[in-house]
Design a protein around this nucleic acid. Structure first.
Length: 289
DNA sequence: GCGACAG
DNA sequence: ATCTTGTCGC
């Protein structure tokens, strides 16, 4: 529809202003829209939550790979959670939030839960959390309340962590993606994994492509995402076998990048696959309306 | 000529 | 995100 088109444009313009801190040609109109936009509350919310963000390792467990023996069972990383959302192809507002927990050693599925919701909040670049976080947090809450012993020690999130723009990208102040958001609110270590690049600090498709080619020499598995400011925002990880399209890993909460990249994104993939699979089955049976 | 940018 | 088209990037 035409209305949707216009809406989309406005939304994009709004996001542009909010993300870049500057306005385009339509600045006057946009400024008015921004003034009464609910996104402003979202900005404030992000600012507040970001105060609690921890960007270092802050957990009691250890990775089994770094120690030989001697760790008690309870001290190892065992329960790795992954969250993702899949959408109905028929109705974009109908979605299925998914939480899975895998055994980090065996990658066996220990827990899975789904939640169907109708999302009202639109997706606006930079404010993904306000659309997707609530569902995922509910799934976590539900599991925690039930006293499930497999409650995750670490959560992998389909979306970015600190690789997130909000104005002055060259400072450390403005970055707080979905993974950070969930991590802080759930008080869990989180890792953000994006399948597409969110442009931050001069990082664009071409920039990243150059970065990947620069270290092409041995096609390293991980390539640091270095922005114009010199800051490392995360890493681009090439999917196992010479795949051209990398995924983007950035820290969410209570974990360092070095630790994060040791915990490869298999869990997220599992969540993604299962979620998609699940919603398809249901739609085949006509149980989703 | 079209449109930047997580899902 | 999801579907689709076409093949590539400013």
């Amino acid at each position: 529809m035409r209305v949707d088109r216009v809406r989309e444009r406005v939304q994009t313009a709004l996001a542009f202003v909010l993300l870049n801190g500057r306005s385009s040609r339509r600045s006057i109109t946009i400024a008015r829209l921004v003034a009464r936009s609910p996104h402003l509350d979202n900005v404030t919310t992000q600012d507040i939550l970001r105060e609690k963000l921890i960007t270092e390792d802050s957990f009691s467990w250890k990775l089994s790979s770094e120690g030989e023996t001697g760790y008690k069972k309870g001290e190892e990383l065992r329960y790795v959670g992954g969250v993702d959302i899949s959408f109905s192809k028929d109705d974009p507002s109908k979605a299925c939030g998914t939480l899975v927990v895998l055994d980090f050693h065996t990658l066996q599925l220990l827990y899975q839960d789904f939640s169907f919701v109708t999302l009202q909040v639109p997706y606006v670049p930079g404010f993904l959390a306000f659309r997707e976080a609530p569902v995922l947090q509910q799934l976590l809450e539900k599991m925690k309340r039930s006293g499930n012993p497999f409650y995750p020690q670490l959560l992998m999130v389909d979306g970015n962590g600190i690789l997130h723009p909000r104005g002055k990208c060259f400072t450390n102040e403005y970055c707080f993606g979905l993974a950070c958001h969930i991590g802080v609110e759930a008080n869990l270590p989180t890792i953000g994994i994006g399948k597409n690049l969110h442009h931050v600090d001069g990082l664009t498709h071409s920039t990243v492509r150059k970065l990947l080619e620069a270290e092409e020499n041995s096609s390293k598995e991980f390539t640091n995402l270095v922005g114009c400011s010199g800051r490392v925002w995360g890493v681009a990880m090439r999917s196992t076998q010479g795949s051209i399209k990398p995924i983007f890993i950035s820290i969410g909460h209570m974990i360092s990048l070095q630790t994060a990249i040791m915990i490869v994104p298999e869990p997220i993939r599992q969540a993604d696959i299962r979620s998609r699979d699940y919603i398809r089955k249901l739609e085949m049976n006509g149980k989703v309306t």
